[in-house]
């Protein structure tokens, strides 16, 4: 027997946005400086990110970058007045939900081609799915944003990621 149905936390106008482009297209060229700062901040001193010879002998065309770095190569600087009290950037096209806070739920990456220093990459993020689930601590909303990273000019997809946000 079913209890009282849970009210939807997803407004109809938000549900209607599945498939919509929510960020991008953004273009950036991967630099050794950016990728190496990221690798050092992670604590990943793999020589294929720092030493051209090591990268070539491992089969890369030139220096490669940590696989997940491509997401951060595409992050654009934003002015201070675009930052909210929590320190987060205020979204230009925010996704509206009747919830308190949104937390990182996880990520799913497909790495189709290694990314290299010097590659120019275009990122486009779509709202891939938004669904309400019943968890042990009550209902929550799972928001999946899928970003595709495409190398230009040849059009090869370098990577795809689905970032999952949990809102309750």
């Amino acid at each position: 027997m079913r209890a009282v149905p849970t009210d939807s936390l997803i407004p109809a106008e938000t549900a209607a946005r599945v498939g919509e482009l929510v960020a991008g297209p953004t273009t950036a060229t991967i630099t050794a400086e950016g990728a190496q700062r990221y690798a050092q901040a992670v604590g990943d001193l793999n020589p294929v990110y720092f030493d051209e010879e090591a990268a070539r002998s491992a089969g890369y065309r030139t220096l490669t970058v940590p696989p997940t770095y491509v997401a951060y190569a595409l992050v654009k600087g934003r002015p201070l007045d675009a930052i909210g009290v929590d320190g987060l950037f205020v979204g230009e096209r925010p996704i509206t939900l009747d919830v308190g806070r949104i937390m990182v739920g996880g990520e799913e990456w497909d790495f189709l081609e290694p990314a290299h220093v010097g590659d120019t990459v275009v990122a486009e993020t779509r709202l891939a799915a938004i669904d309400q689930k019943d968890g042990s601590k009550g209902p929550f909303v799972r928001i999946t944003r899928e970003t595709t990273y495409t190398r230009v000019p040849d059009g090869a997809v370098v990577a795809r990621t689905r970032q999952i946000g949990i809102a309750r």
Partner: peptide, 18 residues
């Protein structure tokens, strides 16, 4: 990701990670 790439060695390639 580093845990996997370090284990896979220089000739290994990570194709998917969740």
């Amino acid at each position: 990701s580093q845990y996997v790439t370090d284990w896979a060695g220089p000739a290994g390639r990570v194709k998917g990670l969740r």
